[in-house]
Design a protein around this nucleic acid. Structure first.
Length: 901
RNA sequence: GCCCGCUUAGCUCAGUGGUAGAGCACACGCUUCACACGCGUGGGGUCGUAGGUUCAAGUCCUACAGCGGGCACCA
């Protein structure tokens, strides 16, 4: 069989995904066991305009490992994919295209035509991320793929809206919102970024009516003073106590405004007096409500000054107006001072424009009320469970506990149009359909609200709407809800986690997921967050091309929930690991004639050779460790266990120990059995690796002799799919095959081989040169052990001759020696190669090391406090160790003597 | 201001109160019949600082420092 020496990931990656998908391996229906437990995940829907970034790749890897693992365990498994419509991003993208290609705005073509174009754009370009996901190897059920603008999901959105409206949770009214002057829409608090910025703090003097006193206020936005309707001070501030209730004259404008007392004001800050602009600041808005202050809007939706700001300012940009206002204050001597000041500004998350807080009529959702049930569930039962618990459980709880109304409406065209209609008299009718609204209005000429809903409003329904809600008795909802886990990034806790919990609790009465796994953040190698503006992002597809998908997945799985600086070295090391797997399989396959997977381990394990009992024990322990690690979301532990089992145990030792049998010149049952054993262990290892490395494992598994339908998990045998490792049973740890004695004995053999190799290297014995070994067993039963493994020991130490004796008394003086655990010793006669002085120094160093260790252990043992208080088991352990050390030191001393002074 | 996390080998990171680990990097040797993306051998750490608890602390507690994050405030 011709197998290349180097693994080519591309070839395997292109080979299997299509077949898995075509044959329905990803769909839960492939499972024919009606009593199978269920495992389900709803993907956090990526943005339809987006392309894959490292964060997606990380999340998808985690989800795919879990999905493939539970599928191989026989669970009825569903991982449901899809995308959201990303209202603003998508609309902006299409608007830009329209401008570029036809020089038109969306208003030029009209709403209906524009939406048609967005759909067309979506059909043409929207599939990018889905193609990239196939490249990742994700085992999502594409037959259930959903899009938030699908007819069904749109119906779910209307249902959500109408029900909440009917219950009074959704209302329409004026409120203080974040307005983006560029995108011309309202935004929720989660769609804006706060940024620290160097600016100025202006101290303005406001005259007190009927007095020559003045009150100085400090502000970062002087232009808003045109809309001031009060000045506030702290009720406990004695400096202003006598002024409370008096009237001030607002400079420039001449408006009379009151001086009020409010708890909000911090007397320590600035002058202790705050100008109040209820129409342009969220805090002032609240204060205005408390004191019944007028709201004067001086800035419009384009961030220009309004007529109310005064004829002199009307139409000016807010920053121009600022300069003029400051100038005016200066001229009239009312500008006390200007100081440098760092403050934070709010910017639109998408376009970076400075947000203008203003009063606007919008639709709002009383989130705090929807959060009540999730909050109760969390406080009473700690559900859902966060992994890692710290700090995310607290972040979630704090968020739910501190919610305020969510601005739902967006002044966009692309999205779910608000199901509210108005009659000629301006009365509003909220309904599931226009027909319902007409019936309710008793009129035909209704106009639908022009606004659409926040994209996150539809994402909030994702776990239930994708499974069929609001349809009564939807079988998917019944089977797959609640989902098993939500895997996402930490900033999504507010956007998805909490809101999905709200809708799940409200409409299904149950949590949306059992667990929430929060992935770590991947930084660049300098520790900087990856971002488009910094252009320091690492493209996962480039990494796939360079190192292969499987290697990349292994790195991502190990990252799990840890914040990490990306490091290509790690991927390279796993690329090498993939190549190691490839070559181990290459060896097994090149020597597979006469053997099949499953053969070679016949009869009672007690009769097997040591290294066979050992590898089976290691295999079962590894299966146990990997399963435990995956189920506990400790993916790095699973990867570590797999890496070391495969490379160290299987390749470095088991294959080497089996080599002489496997490659024996004469064919025969013994050779074939040995071949069957390496194949069998390899096949089991491929299953263990499969959730992490789907492509290479499938590529190799397909080539193994003796795998077929019977290899599949019993739940998949009737499915009629091409036998595949992804539907094979994940190896269950058989504790009866875990053999501690075999492992201890193998440790002795490994130590012997390692000591001899060390001697060979240190004494510069040529690798090709054969040596002679004398093993002294001190009559403690190790003799049989070493004798039984003699052929293996000879091969691994490149020894022509090995003799096992009671002691090393008879060995030539010109020998290099080493001490082994359990009182055994080994000598390598090296006539002519030994420099006695050097050898004495070498052994002297070894003895010194042991003596130092013994001193430490002895010190502890001679401490009565330790012996008295530590568990007897620990004390005994240490005594054993001390005895072993003493034995070694004694033996090393004898060796020094034998070498002569 | 409040809360949280991190600080372990040159780098990236594991680490469960009981002998400090891995990968990469480094050094030396190797055309050993699966693999140089490899094989063998080795060097390298007062576990951020200072206290405390304990027979025993990288691990638990307190304080501090540096880095990072969240929330609040930011007139």
């Amino acid at each position: 069989m011709e197998i290349p020496k180097t693994y080519d990931p591309k070839q395997a990656e292109e080979h299997h995904y299509g077949r898995w998908e075509r044959e329905g391996c990803f769909a839960p229906e492939v499972n024919g066991d009606p009593s199978a437990p269920v495992y389900s995940i709803a993907i956090p829907p990526p943005n339809v305009t987006g392309s894959l970034h490292m964060g997606h790749a990380l999340q998808h890897t985690i989800m795919d490992v879990l999905t493939r693992y539970y599928r191989m365990k026989g669970f009825r498994t569903l991982w449901l994919p899809g995308t959201d419509h990303a209202g603003i991003s998508t609309q902006i993208m299409v608007e830009r295209q329209l401008k570029k290609e036809e020089g038109k705005t969306r208003h030029d073509v009209g709403r209906e035509d524009f939406i048609g174009r967005v759909w067309k754009w979506k059909e043409q370009y929207g599939g990018e991320i889905q193609r990239q996901m196939r490249r990742e190897g994700v085992s999502v059920d594409w037959s259930r793929e959903r899009f938030t603008m699908d007819e069904h999901l749109s119906r779910a959105v209307r249902e959500f809206f109408v029900r909440c409206y009917e219950e009074g949770l959704i209302y329409r009214g004026p409120g203080m919102i974040n307005w983006c002057p560029k995108d011309q829409t309202a935004l929720s608090d989660l769609e804006v970024d706060k940024e620290s910025q160097a600016g100025k703090l202006y101290y303005l003097r406001y005259p007190v009516k009927g007095s020559d006193r003045r009150v100085t206020v400090a502000t970062t936005r002087p232009e808003t003073m045109l809309g001031d309707t009060a000045v506030a001070v702290s009720p406990v501030d004695e400096r202003y106590a006598d002024l409370v209730g008096m009237t001030l004259i607002l400079p420039i404008v001449g408006r009379e405004i009151p001086l009020v007392a409010d708890e909000f004001v911090d007397p320590e800050f600035g002058t202790g007096a705050v100008k109040v602009t209820p129409a342009h600041d969220p805090a002032d808005y609240a204060m205005g409500k408390r004191h019944g202050l007028a709201q004067v809007s001086v800035i419009d939706q384009h961030a220009r000054m309004t007529a109310e700001a005064g004829a002199e300012y009307e139409g000016l940009d807010r920053y121009e107006a600022r300069e003029r206002v400051v100038q005016k204050f200066e001229e009239s001597g009312l500008l006390e001072k200007v100081v440098d000041y760092e403050f934070s500004i709010t910017k639109c998350e998408r376009c970076g424009t400075v947000i203008e807080p203003l009063i606007s009529t919008q639709w709002f959702l009383k989130q705090a009320e929807l959060a009540r049930e999730p909050l109760r569930l969390f406080r009473e039962r700690r559900e859902p469970r966060f992994v890692p618990e710290n700090p995310y459980a607290k972040v979630y709880e704090n968020w739910l506990a501190g919610l305020y109304d969510w601005t739902l409406s967006r002044q966009l065209w692309w999205g779910h149009r608000i199901p509210a209609w108005y009659d000629a008299g301006g009365n509003v009718y909220v309904a599931r359909t226009e027909e319902d609204a007409r019936r309710a209005a008793g009129a035909d000429d209704l106009e639908q609200d022009p606004d659409v809903l926040d994209t996150w409003f539809s994402s909030a329904l994702w776990p239930i709407s994708t499974l069929g809600w609001p349809d009564e008795g939807s079988p998917d909802l019944k089977t797959f809800y609640p989902t098993s886990v939500l895997v996402t990034a930490r900033d999504i806790i507010f956007l998805w986690v909490s809101r999905m919990m709200m809708t799940g609790m409200k409409f299904e009465g149950r949590k949306a997921f059992d667990d929430v796994f929060i992935t770590g953040t991947i930084f660049d190698k300098h520790g900087q967050r990856m971002s488009k503006t910094k252009a320091n992002g690492i493209d996962p597809l480039v990494v796939f091309d360079k190192y292969g998908v499987d290697a990349t997945r292994l790195v991502l799985a190990s990252i799990g929930s840890t914040d990490t600086r990306w490091n290509d070295n790690q991927v390279e090391s796993y690329r090498n690991f993939a190549n190691k797997i490839w070559n181990a399989a290459r060896f097994c396959l090149m020597n597979s004639e006469g053997a099949r997977v499953g053969g070679g381990f016949e009869g009672e394990p007690e009769r097997w050779a040591l290294h066979d009992r050992w590898i089976v024990s290691r295999l079962n322990k590894t299966a146990r460790e990997v399963a435990a690690a995956v189920e506990a979301y400790q993916f790095h532990e699973a990867v570590y266990a797999l890496y070391h089992f495969f490379w160290d145990d299987f390749c470095d030792w088991y294959i080497e120990l089996s080599k002489s049998d496997v490659t024996a010149a004469d064919a025969g049952p013994e050779r074939d059995a040995a071949r069957g054993r390496v194949l069998t262990v390899l096949e089991q290892a491929l299953r263990l690796l499969h959730p992490f490395m789907p492509f290479i494992t499938e590529e190799l598994w397909q080539r193994l002799p003796g795998v077929g339908k019977e290899s599949l998990h019993v739940a998949y045998r009737e499915a009629g799919v091409t036998p595949t490792v992804m539907l094979a049973a994940f190896p269950r740890a058989d504790e009866s095959l875990v053999d501690e004695r075999a492992e201890a004995e193998m440790r002795s053999v490994i130590e012997l081989v390692s000591r001899v190799r060390n001697i060979r290297t240190e004494l510069s014995v040529k690798p090709s040169e054969e040596v002679r070994l004398v093993i002294g067993t001190a009559g403690n039963g190790l003799g049989d052990l070493f004798t039984a493994s003699l052929p293996q020991i000879k091969r691994l130490t490149r020894a022509a001759d090995v003799s096992v004796r009671d002691s090393l008394a008879e060995v030539p003086r010109a020998s290099a020696r080493a001490v082994l655990a359990g009182g055994a010793e080994v000598a390598v006669p090296l006539e002519g190669l030994i420099d006695f002085e050097q050898e004495r120094a070498r052994i002297g160093r070894a003895r010194e090391k042991q003596e130092k260790e013994l001193q430490k252990v002895g010190g502890q043992l001679s401490n009565p406090q330790f012996v008295g208080r530590a568990p007897a088991e620990k004390v005994e352990e240490l005594r054993q160790r001390a005895a072993d050390l003493a034995g070694r030191i004694k033996a090393l001393g004898e060796m020094l003597e034998a070498l002569g002074e």
